[in-house]
Design a protein around this nucleic acid. Structure first.
Length: 330
DNA sequence: GTGGATGATTGAAA
DNA sequence: TTTCAATCATCCAC
């Protein structure tokens, strides 16, 4: 069946005839009465609903993340918290990652607000449209104001369900971004060549007691542009790996021994010196004094440094350059 | 893609 | 708390 101009004209004519019918007012009032009675039952079942706790959670999270609500100077509480959580780590590209995080968050924020605006606009347009329709219909059938209100609230509910989905996906996006950002911060970065050199110089010049004091660690950290705990980690790793595979490190030890010896001979101070000399017999440059090439026999056979008070007197018949243990880590 | 190197983390021991 | 030892996760040269 097709709608033609003629059929539309006919329908309009019939509508007009009905509106002008002498029985129309009476019929209309009867319909109003019935409507009022049924409307009551509908209204009673459409009591005001409490605020959805899930929606509240989403709203709170979006606010906390800085997506909803006023912009906090280009940053978010989460970003600030994440930056604080880095524990003062002196990752040189931390700030880059941080600004990257903020720009991504700003993107999410922008998308969220533009979508939200679009939904609100669409909701208003649709509500106006429905209201106009109902007003139009009210000329031919009874449409109580309450019914109009109910229709508006239905529309709003539908749109807020859509908004909730938007909020949900925005929250997901923020969570993904956050986890990526945190992962990125945890990414391992090799220390700079210069930093490794400084640490190695200290390590090999204090081979009989490679345990830098707190002050020495701070000094090394400052020189290398890393944190004290990174220095501790480095020395921890170095000690254990050196001990496990002395042979492998001998060449490196010799290189640093020569380096240090040369700088000593030149009377220079290029070597990373400890601000506080080591407490044990292994004093500053202890094994390198006369440009002597390092001998790995300074370590105890048991692999411990703690007891190696007089390195040169301690020899190991079992451990030495030839004794190779592999780092089981790999 | 692979394997070694290396920084970080974790749990136990001192 | 610090260190050791094992392990994880990532980087990087090949």
């Amino acid at each position: 069946m097709t709608i033609t101009d003629q059929s539309l004209d006919e329908a309009q004519a019939k509508k007009h005839a009905l509106n002008c019918h002498r029985m129309k007012p009476a019929l209309f009032s009867v319909l109003c009465e019935i409507k009022e009675k049924t409307g009551l039952s509908i209204r009673s079942s459409q009591e005001e609903e409490p605020v959805d706790p899930q929606l509240m959670r989403l709203d709170n999270m979006l606010l906390a993340e800085g997506v909803a609500g006023p912009e906090k100077g280009g940053g978010s509480a989460a970003a600030a918290a994440a930056a604080a959580a880095s524990g003062g780590g002196v990752s040189p590209d931390n700030s880059i990652e941080h600004s990257d995080y903020r720009s991504k968050l700003a993107q999410i924020r922008h998308i969220y607000h533009s979508e939200l605006e679009k939904y609100e606009q669409a909701c208003n347009e649709f509500t106006t449209h429905v209201m106009n329709l109902l007003r139009e219909q009210s000329r031919t059938r009874p449409v109580a104001p309450k019914e109009m209100e109910r229709m508006v609230s239905i529309i709003h509910r539908k749109f807020s369900a859509i908004q909730m989905q938007l909020k949900q996906s925005t929250c997901e996006a923020v969570m993904i971004l956050r986890s990526r950002f945190l992962d990125a911060r945890r990414k391992r970065r090799n220390f700079s060549k210069q930093a490794t050199e400084v640490l190695n110089e200290y390590f090999y010049s204090h081979l009989s007691n490679p345990y830098p004091s707190e002050e020495a660690k701070e000094e090394l950290a400052k020189k290398c542009g890393i944190t004290v705990s990174q220095v501790s980690n480095w020395f921890g790793n170095k000690r254990i790996r050196y001990k496990k595979n002395i042979g492998k490190f001998q060449e490196e030890a010799n290189i640093y021994a020569v380096k240090t010896a040369v700088s000593v001979a030149q009377g220079g101070h290029s070597r990373t010196s400890s601000p506080t000399p080591p407490s044990s017999a292994g004093s500053y440059g202890d094994n390198l004094g006369g440009g002597q090439i390092y001998s790995p026999r300074e370590m105890r056979a048991n692999g411990g440094w703690q007891e190696a008070v007089t390195p040169s007197s301690v020899t190991s018949p079992t451990e030495g350059p030839g004794s190779v243990h592999s780092d089981t880590s790999n």
